[in-house]
C-alpha cells in the first residue's frame, strides 16, 4: 500500500527532480513498444543501472521495422555520451544481413550482454511425436509447417537452419508474434515451433531438442541438436546493451561497470527469476566477439536457406 502512495508522490516529484538533474540525463532506447518482453527486462534493468552510473535515466520506446528503427537511432547518435540502446538479438545479428540498414555490427560500442535463453525445438503436447527422429520420418509423406514470430526472426532462422541441415521436411509460416503462433500451434495449423523456455512452460508443448552446445539444466533428457547427428546449431534469444560509436573510453568503461553491477544485483536477479530470463553476462570485448560470431553464423544460415536479398 505504501508503494502506491510513493508512486503517486513520485508522479508529482519526478518533474522537479528531473529538471534539476537534467544535465546528467541518460536515454535508454528500447526498440519495441512499451510492455513487450524486451521492454520489461529493460525497465527492470534501468533503475539499478542509472543508480550505478549516478544519472537520471529515461526509457524511450522507439518501435518499428523489426526493432531496427530504434537501433538505428542509437547508431546515428555517434559520439553522444547520453544515449544507449537495450537491444534484442535480431536487430544486431540478423537484420543487417536481411536488408539495407543505416547500421551494421560495427556501428556500436558494445557494453554488455545481459540475458540469454537457449531455444528449443518443440511440438504440441497433443501430438504423438516424441522424438526428433520420429518428426523427420513423419515429415517425409507430407511436409510439416513450422511457425515463427515473423520473417527473419530467431525462431524462423533456427528452424530454417534445421531444415537445411537435416532430412526434416518443413515449410515456414510466419505470424505477427509468438502469441499468434502459439494460437496456431494450439489449433494444429502449424506443427513445429522453435522458441525459449518461457514459451515452452506457458503453453502445453513438448521439447524435442535444444539449440545449444550442451544440455540445459532442468531439461536433462532433451538432446542437443548436435547429439541428433546434425551440425552444431546454436540459437538463443539474448539481449544486450550497446552505445553509439565515438564515445570516450572512460564513458564506455563506466557503462560496462554499471552494467556488470546491475546484472549481479539482487534486484535484477529476483526479477530475472520471475520473468524466466536467464542471466548470462558478457563483458564488452566478449560481447563484441559474440555478436560478430552470431552475425556471421546467421548470415550463413540466411544464405543457405536462400533468404538474403
Amino acid at each position: 500500500m505504501k508503494s502506491l502512495r510513493y508512486s503517486l508522490a513520485a508522479l508529482a516529484l519526478i518533474g522537479t527532480t528531473h529538471a534539476a538533474m537534467a544535465a546528467d540525463n541518460l536515454e535508454i532506447i528500447v526498440p519495441f513498444a512499451a510492455g513487450g518482453a524486451t521492454d520489461i527486462v529493460a525497465r527492470s534493468f534501468e533503475p539499478t543501472f542509472s543508480q550505478q552510473l549516478g544519472v537520471t535515466s529515461v526509457v524511450r520506446n522507439v518501435a518499428g521495422a523489426s526493432a531496427t528503427v530504434g537501433t538505428a537511432e542509437v547508431a546515428n547518435s555517434e559520439g553522444n555520451p547520453n544515449i544507449i540502446g537495450y537491444e534484442p538479438a535480431g536487430a544486431l545479428s540478423i537484420q543487417p544481413s536481411l536488408k539495407k540498414l543505416p547500421y551494421g555490427p560495427d556501428s556500436f560500442t558494445y557494453i554488455c550482454r545481459t540475458v540469454s535463453n537457449p531455444m528449443f525445438l518443440m511440438v504440441s503436447k497433443s501430438s504423438d511425436i516424441t522424438s526428433f527422429k520420429q518428426l523427420v520420418e513423419e515429415s517425409q509423406d507430407q511436409p510439416f509447417l513450422y511457425g515463427s514470430s515473423g520473417p527473419g526472426t530467431l525462431p524462423h532462422l533456427a528452424m530454417a537452419a534445421t531444415v537445411v541441415n537435416s532430412d526434416l521436411k518443413a515449410e515456414h509460416v510466419p505470424y505477427s508474434g509468438s502469441g499468434p503462433a502459439m494460437n496456431a500451434l494450439a489449433g494444429n495449423e502449424i506443427q513445429i515451433m522453435a522458441d525459449t523456455e518461457t514459451i515452452l512452460e506457458n503453453y502445453d508443448l513438448r521439447p524435442l531438442a535444444v539449440f545449444a552446445d550442451h544440455r540445459v539444466e532442468g531439461y536433462d533428457d532433451v538432446p542437443t541438436i548436435e547429439e541428433l547427428g546434425l551440425p552444431a546449431l546454436d540459437f538463443s534469444v539474448w539481449q544486450g546493451v550497446v552505445a553509439p560509436k565515438g564515445i570516450s573510453d572512460e564513458r564506455a568503461k563506466q557503462y560496462a561497470e554499471a552494467c556488470k553491477a546491475t546484472v549481479e544485483s539482487d534486484k535484477f536477479k529476483t526479477f530475472a527469476d520471475k520473468a524466466k530470463a536467464n542471466i548470462a553476462y558478457l563483458g564488452p570485448d566478449d560481447f563484441k566477439a559474440f555478436v560478430q560470431k552470431r552475425f556471421e553464423a546467421n548470415k550463413q544460415v540466411l544464405e543457405d536457406a536462400g533468404l538474403t536479398q
Binding site: 513498444a33 510492455g35 513487450g36 520489461i40 508474434g177 502469441g179 499468434p180 502459439m182 520471475k274 520473468a275
Partner: peptide, 29 residues
C-alpha cells in the same frame, strides 16, 4: 485469450500482459 492462453489479442492487452509478467504472473494455459 490473454488470460486463458497467454495470447494477447492486440497491442493493449500485450502491454497488460507485460505488466503481469513483471509481477511474476505469466499468462498461459
Amino acid at each position: 485469450p490473454t488470460l486463458a492462453l497467454g495470447i494477447p489479442g492486440d497491442v493493449v492487452t500485450a502491454m497488460m500482459m507485460g505488466a503481469m509478467v513483471i509481477h511474476g504472473i505469466t499468462p498461459g494455459v
